[in-house]
């Protein structure tokens, strides 16, 4: 179980700088969401933590161990890919158990862990199927199952919900919140979807062009954005629309413009939920209707 530290992390592709000095401290058990427009480097940063990209400068530590030169497999991280990246030739059972098999886990232990994970994700009936026989949401569960059986210190999610339709996304968000709650693990989550960020995160990190623009709790970013960019990243479509945010809003071409022009822009909206734990609490007391309607507008 471990937190995570990034110290002035840089990444260059040849001459092109992509990550330009990122410092972050992530506590154990925290749910951190990286948001930003495409090309801001959020996925690259995640992949650097995973070890899938070299680190050009600075240090990444998991726990108290600097992992710059550690192979991905030895970092104690698990990742859920946007494409799910399931092994097409293996059954769900083997997909989930592949990491354990490679680690030489005895067969009976492995079997128990796979079945436990399947139970948690309610996919026990799918274990014998191949990925091609699953729906998008089911594949997503398998991908998450593959991550959780290995009991990693850190979970990494690379836009895991972006290939699902809106209703499923809502379900999976709740599922992820629940998992975070149950597993008490560090999770880092990349998305360009503000709703996901707001509903899931303990901490939101807003990235722009390879730099951290602002980091903080969803509420603090929402209430007190350092600049227009952060504000636009966090609440583009509900600017100046307190309470009515749940209504389908006309989608402005450029949220920033609206923010600047909107007469009610300075009024502070009330936001009913922040952070996954809050979200959990809210979800349990509120019917999920409102959430799906929100998602539909997002």
């Amino acid at each position: 179980m471990a937190g995570l530290t990034l110290r002035s992390v840089y990444k260059n592709y040849g001459e092109v700088p992509v990550i330009k000095g990122v410092d972050l401290d992530i506590d154990h058990g925290e749910f951190v969401v990286f948001v930003g427009p495409s090309g801001c480097g959020k996925s690259t940063l995640l992949r650097m933590i995973a070890g899938l990209e070299d680190i050009s400068g600075g240090e990444v530590s998991i726990g108290d161990r600097v992992v710059n030169d550690v192979e991905p497999r030895d970092r104690g991280v698990a990742m859920v890919f946007q494409s799910y990246a399931l092994y097409p030739h293996m059954s769900v059972y083997d997909n989930v158990g592949f990491g354990l098999k490679l680690a030489g886990t005895p067969k009976d232990v492995r079997d128990k862990k796979i079945r436990d994970a399947a139970k948690v994700l309610q996919m026990e009936h799918l274990l014998d199927r191949r990925p091609a026989q699953l729906s998008g949401g089911q594949r997503q569960r398998v991908a998450i199952g593959r991550a959780i059986v290995r009991q990693p210190d850190v979970f990494l999610f690379d836009e895991p919900l972006s290939n699902l339709d809106a209703a499923l996304r809502v379900d999976m968000r709740m599922e992820l919140s629940r998992l975070h709650h149950d597993l008490n693990a560090t999770m880092i989550y990349v998305t360009h979807d503000q709703v996901e960020a707001m509903t899931l995160a303990d901490t939101i990190v807003v990235l722009r062009a390879g730099r951290v623009e602002q980091a903080g709790t969803p509420l603090s970013l929402y209430d007190d954005p350092d600049n227009l960019f952060v504000a636009g990243s966090i609440r583009p479509r509900m600017l100046g629309r307190p309470l009515s945010v749940w209504e389908p809003a006309p989608c402005p071409a450029n949220p920033l413009t609206v923010f600047a022009l909107s007469p009610t822009a300075r009024r502070k909206p009330t936001l009913p939920l922040t952070g996954s734990r809050h979200a959990m609490a809210t979800m349990q007391s509120t019917p999920p209707m409102w959430l799906s309607r929100w998602a539909a507008t997002a």
Binding site: S38, G39, Q82, Y84, L86, R130, N163
Partner: peptide, 15 residues
């Protein structure tokens, strides 16, 4: 065989 990986809309600019 590769059907489980949908042709996603990931922008082609990814290095």
């Amino acid at each position: 065989n590769t059907a489980s990986v949908p042709g996603n809309q990931r922008p082609p600019v990814r290095l």
